[in-house]
Design a protein around this nucleic acid. Structure first.
Lengths: 243, 243
DNA sequence: ATTTTTTAAACATCATATGATTATAATTGT
DNA sequence: ACAATTATAATCATATGATGTTTAAAAAAT
């Protein structure tokens, strides 16, 4: 419930989108399980106090994201996880309002570890000056952010996002959502104040510097270190059951 | 119009999904441009000979994929490309019914080149025996396929998909659609009979063997060669304007 | 026990009406 | 003339009710 940034910002107001978010969260959080039939349109419209039209709009959104399958005469059922559009920004965001899933997070980090170093490289090779400046801005903001944990993590995410954007690869850009999901999940899971970790900020500084200097090799290597370090600390935290 | 595999297979019948595909294609193919207002619900419902409800369902699907933004009082406008869920399987598939975009394809290959070698590695490390068997099956099918170009390319795609699946990483799996899009686009662009390329089949054979033997290092390296080779030939083709 | 028929549940589509929001045009005040 | 205000038309949002189609399951017939 805490971290509720982005998501389909356009139209975050419309009731249909709200309902789709509500249902989407229940699906992602395992409240509705794959294969399950969810309630019929009438029940849903009563439960959310909206008309059937709204329910249908909401369901259509989720069908588009691969979370639901509707068959007339049968009902609406939750798709198998393999059908889900896991890279959809909303779907990723919904993961944040569910109990953090360690295995999912591990896989997320695994992918980040191969994606982001290349993003850093491409930022050096194809990034426009203005885009690199954005990276520096995000870095500074992260170094200076002391007010809240949340703001710090968001600054962190913006840093990584700036790199994705500077890579000037559309496919890469489409993965931006991964970062927010991974970072916020990781914070919630480890429950540690990331501002305390001066070492991490140093890692970021080094990456930023390399990119600004357009030293692709260095940037790639340093991003690997950064993520490797984060992943390592994360793993330690995770494998040590908190209580 | 040729290559029309997968897409939201569930419910490919419902009119709403058909209409969403039609509009989606127009957007992806640049027929409707980002920032443009598309026709209002009434006109669309007349154009497609369906009711407004169906149009609204269709539009909702596209809103969910980030292609459209609806604002009451204004209309429905096409989102900026950066908002698109480019990794959505439908969106990728719609690219296939548009004139191939060289730059998009280049970026796709760029990403494949960093993703797939790791997928091959993880297949070795985490793949279940049955999943590896699937890879071998796909490989055999590719070697034996001689009937049509299309079938051959599909066999090729299934080979790569089998590897993604064997990686047992959900995020990775969610990228399956990339393969189909990349392979089919590439064929349409170069307009060359891939069956003729015995060398390519050999590359695939080597990758498959390495994975079956669960030799992660070899698998990763060989997948790099495979994609590097493909990318290289593709580049040559592309940069040589046909006619 | 098997096949056929009927029925009820559920979604698909259509049609219509009303409310809310927005941009634009018309009006008014100065 | 210019600015501020107001009215209007366009467009989507939501609600409601009716009818059609599909499916699964119950009932009936053989």
């Amino acid at each position: 419930m805490y971290y509720d940034l982005k998501e389909t910002d356009s139209l975050a107001h419309s009731t249909a989108v709200q309902v789709s978010r509500e249902i989407g969260r229940r699906i992602v959080s395992g409240n509705y399980k794959p294969g399950d039939l969810i309630e019929d349109e009438m029940s849903l419209s009563e439960r959310f106090s909206v008309s059937r039209s709204v329910v249908r709009d909401a369901v259509k959104i989720l069908v588009g994201k691969g979370l639901l399958e509707v068959r007339r005469g049968i009902g609406t059922r939750v798709q198998e996880r393999t059908k889900w559009g896991l890279l959809d920004n909303d779907v990723l965001a919904w993961h944040l309002s569910s109990p953090p899933d360690r295995e999912f997070l591990r896989q997320l980090m695994e992918v980040r570890l191969i994606i982001e170093p290349k993003a850093a490289r491409w930022a050096c090779e194809h990034g426009r000056d203005k885009q690199l400046a954005e990276i520096e801005i995000a870095q500074t903001r992260m170094e200076e952010e002391q007010s809240s944990i949340e703001d710090f993590v968001i600054a962190d995410a913006l840093f990584h996002r700036a790199i994705f954007r500077a890579s000037n690869n559309e496919i890469m850009r489409a993965m931006e959502g991964l970062i927010f999901s991974a970072l916020l999940s990781s914070i919630r899971l480890t429950n540690k104040d990331p501002r305390k970790n001066k070492e991490s900020i140093l890692f970021h500084r080094k990456v930023a510097d390399a990119i600004i200097q357009r030293d692709a090799d260095k940037a790639e290597a340093r991003m690997e270190s950064l993520l490797g370090d984060a992943g390592h600390r994360l793993k330690k935290q995770i494998n040590t059951p908190k209580k």
